[in-house]
């Protein structure tokens, strides 16, 4: 019998969607409101840790493998570093463009109409260039990384909980 009592599971079922929605909101609006990829990822990983505590590690490992979470974490890292390298790559595509590592190549151009506006005090979500994309990459990385730490620790020490 893994997991905690029925009361804890019911309260977790009620509270879990709100935690997830708040964390994803913090990630998606990282360039407008306080927060960002790291903070929102920490909030989402807290909600997943709540599921892990309430339902037990054996039930969670039956749903999701830590190998897949490692793949997600590496995917976030690859997205982040490739967004950084695109700044150098676009020097050769646009001859008039001054690009460096981590340069914000989406801001102030009309070729790619996504996140390209300059919003000062407007709370417009279609702004800030590569910052929202980097927020998503870092958020994916932090969610998968922090949750796989807790999951592997809980699942590896499960032998003593049966005694």
């Amino acid at each position: 019998m893994s997991g905690m009592s029925r009361i804890v599971k019911t309260i977790t079922n009620v509270a879990f969607p709100f935690v997830m929605i708040y964390g994803l909101y913090v990630i998606a609006h990282g360039h407008l409101t306080p927060g960002g990829g790291f903070q929102g990822g920490a909030v989402v990983a807290s909600g997943l840790a709540m599921i892990l505590v309430a339902y037990g590690s054996i039930w969670v490992v039956g749903k999701v493998k830590e190998k897949h979470l490692s793949v997600l974490e590496s995917l976030g890292a690859i997205g982040f570093i490739s967004l950084a390298f695109f700044g150098i790559l676009l020097v050769y595509l646009y001859s008039s463009f001054e690009g460096t590592f981590f340069s914000n190549f989406l801001i102030g151009q009309d070729t790619i109409p996504i996140f390209n506006e300059i919003g000062k005090g407007l709370a417009n979500i279609n702004t800030a260039g590569i910052i929202p994309l980097m927020n998503f990459a870092v958020g994916l990385k932090v969610i998968a990384g922090l949750f796989v730490i807790v999951l592997v620790m809980a699942y590896s020490t499960r032998i003593k909980e049966g005694k």
């Binding site: 960002g36 903070q39 003593k160 909980e161």
Partner: peptide
């Protein structure tokens, strides 16, 4: 508020979970 969100997520929740798993 940035640091407050990170501290509440990591310090108050995940660190406690890791400590209690280690104590178990």
């Amino acid at each position: 508020p940035d640091v407050a969100i990170a501290e509440a997520g990591i310090g108050a929740c995940l660190t406690t979970a890791i400590l209690i798993i280690s104590i178990r």
